[in-house]
Amino acid sequence: MNYLPGTASLVEEIDKKLLVVLRDGRTLIGYLRTIDQFANLVLHRTIERIHVGKKYGDIPRGIFIVRGENVVLLGEVDLENEDKLPLEQVNIDTILELQREQQVERELEQDRKKKAMAERGIHVDQAIDDF
């Protein structure tokens, strides 16, 4: 592939271990195998990493084809410092449980707001957090 110097290109990232943040907030970590002009990605040996506070858990996912428009950013994982993070890894069930609790809390909060708004005759679309 021929590209100009100074151009942001993903070509150099191929076959590297990358962290991908999606628009819905999910974090995937995997090996980038191929790309195209839309930043559609193929990720190999992917895990989904869930963070709750200082804890995180990994779920093995396998191969992903990610549609480019859902990509927020890609970062090269710093392999040297990968294991020196001030975070604690927990098993899948624990992190899923923590995530669920966090989710419930958020929904309660949103419901409260919605209710307060509705009582004043304002109907809020659920689309707020959709962007």
Partner: peptide, 10 residues
């Protein structure tokens, strides 16, 4: 914009 939950003030 937020709604105060006590007073329903916007």
């Amino acid at each position: 914009s937020e709604i105060d939950e006590e007073t329903y003030e916007e």
